[in-house]
Design a protein around this nucleic acid. Structure first.
Lengths: 128, 128
DNA sequence: CTGTATCCAAAATGATACTG
DNA sequence: CAGTATCATTTTGGATACAG
């Protein structure tokens, strides 16, 4: 007798996909790179608020995962270009779908955030 | 002159959707509930490894966000049932797509994890 | 069975100064 | 321009004991 579909075991694909969702910036870096190869500085400007440390760290991770290719041009000033690998392109697919949904459903996001705000206010009222 | 599409500003939908992706369990809880209303204990068993604290905390969050409805039955022993609200159902849509992709692309996940493992081994070789 | 409160450990992120 | 290293901080998660 098979287990119900809704059980999410420790090593099921649904949990494993969270690898690219866990990091605060990972999926956004991949998404930006889906628009084409980009230099470090461009990536930095495409992700307002990211720190230099997190940018480098995230890029190393996706590079280690084989999702992104790093190419160094030995010129002055130094130039480094990042681009998606074929594997990286596969992973961008579901991410783009998710982001497209987000763009098309900003109203739902508003609603969610309004609800959270209201519930936070209600909670703080208690403490007065 | 408009900005490039790939710029992800602080309050763009692509960043805001990460609200439901950030928590370690949030999206999985929603996914499980998409199979139908469920009691606390069922949810716990559907998510092996989740602690009681995280389960409650996650449920409170999605409840506050208006994604999940909590219904208490005043019986002994106590019974509480959770179910998706209409808003919650909307959010499950892109999540299911993501999870379906993961199930269909386990090979890509393997490849990613192999790459990461290899790069970790290579890194530790350095330190010997 | 369901839920709360604490205390604690670990992980993720950020600011900054420095190097080639 | 690109990257490293370090330190401090914040966030997150989990174990446990207790309560209705």
């Amino acid at each position: 007798m098979a287990e119900p579909d809704f059980i999410l075991r420790e090593n099921c694909p649904q949990r494993r996909i969270h690898y690219i969702l866990n990091g605060k910036w990972t999926s956004m870096v991949l998404s930006v790179l889906s628009y084409g190869p980009m230099r470090t500085g461009q990536l930095e400007r495409a992700l307002p608020g990211i720190s230099k440390k997190m940018l480098t760290q995230t890029l190393r991770e996706v590079e280690n995962g084989g999702l992104v290719h790093r190419e160094v041009f030995h010129v002055v000033p130094p130039k480094v270009e990042y681009s998606l690998t074929p594997l990286g392109i596969r992973f961008v697919e579901p991410l783009s779908a998710l982001y497209d949904w987000a763009k098309d459903n900003a109203a739902a996001l508003d609603e969610l955030e309004d609800n959270l705000r209201r519930s936070a206010e209600a909670a703080s009222k208690q403490g007065e």
